[in-house]
C-alpha cells in the first residue's frame, strides 16, 4: 500500500466516524452534547496539527547545531593537507 493510500484510508476513517456522530447517521439517539463536541473536531485537529508543526519546526531551526569547531578543524586540516601534498610533489 502506498503512503497516499494509507493517508486516504486514515482520513476517510476519521471522516466517517465524524459524520456518524455529527449527523447521527445510525440513529443512535446520541445526547446532543456529543454532536456539539463532535462537529468542530476536524477544525480543532487541523489547528492542533498546524501548531504542532510550527512549534516543532521552529524548535528544530532554533536548536540546529552550528558546527563552528568542525569548520575550524577542516580549515586547519586543509592547510596541513596542502603543505603535505606539495611536499609529495602535487602540482595544482
Amino acid at each position: 500500500m502506498t503512503k497516499l493510500l494509507e493517508w486516504l484510508l486514515g482520513v476517510s476513517f476519521v471522516g466517517i466516524a465524524w459524520g456518524l456522530v455529527t449527523f447521527d447517521l445510525l440513529d443512535l439517539q446520541l445526547p446532543s452534547v456529543c454532536k456539539e463536541v463532535a462537529w468542530p473536531i476536524p477544525v480543532y485537529l487541523l489547528v492542533v496539527f498546524g501548531c504542532y508543526s510550527l512549534a516543532t519546526v521552529g524548535y528544530r531551526v532554533a536548536t540546529f547545531n552550528d558546527c563552528e569547531d568542525a569548520a575550524k578543524e577542516l580549515q586547519a586540516q586543509i592547510k596541513e593537507a596542502k603543505e603535505d601534498l606539495k611536499q609529495k610533489g602535487l602540482k595544482m
Binding site: R60, F64, N65, D66, C67, E68, A70, A71
Partner: peptide
C-alpha cells in the same frame, strides 16, 4: 538532524 549532527555556513 540528530545528536551532535549539524551544519556550518547555513
Amino acid at each position: 538532524y540528530r545528536g551532535d549532527g549539524g551544519v556550518y555556513g547555513w
